[in-house]
Write a protein that binds this DNA or RNA. Structure first.
Length: 112
DNA sequence: CAATTGACATGGA
DNA sequence: ATCCATGCCAATT
């Protein structure tokens, strides 16, 4: 599981201003399909300088308890926030702020 | 070791 | 569009 931490951090660091991804997306990108929950757990306790505000759930909903903070930061990054608590995924899946985002699982990584 | 909880995902009501 | 139910994984109690 800790193997996931550095992987997730790397993915988040790879993100670009204006880029928003879902937990499942990050998990899959890190090489762990289905570990979306674990990702969220990490962002919760990790003290690393990870842009957790660029991570939202599959529904486009911001983080519970910090939605205001998220919305504020996202808005500052150029991400259109709706109602100050939601993000239109319609624009996120496919195009990411003008950068290529397609990493697919490099190899079978599931020692479990 | 079993039950519960949670910054998730998907689908149906 | 929102809420509820089920599944999946990991951490806590």
């Amino acid at each position: 599981m800790e193997d996931l931490e550095p992987a997730v951090l790397a993915v988040l660091r790879s993100l670009v201003p204006g880029e928003v991804v879902t937990y499942g997306e990050v998990a899959a990108d890190a090489g762990w399909p289905g570990r979306a929950r674990a990702v969220g757990n990490i962002l919760r306790w990790t003290d690393e300088p990870v842009p957790w505000w660029r991570v939202v759930n599959a529904s486009g909903r911001l983080v519970p308890g910090n939605e205001q903070e998220q919305a504020k930061r996202l808005r500052a990054e150029g991400v259109p926030v709706v109602d100050g608590q939601r993000v239109p995924l319609s624009r996120i899946r496919s195009d990411s702020a003008g950068h290529s985002r397609a990493a697919q699982s490099p190899k079978g990584r599931s020692p479990r």
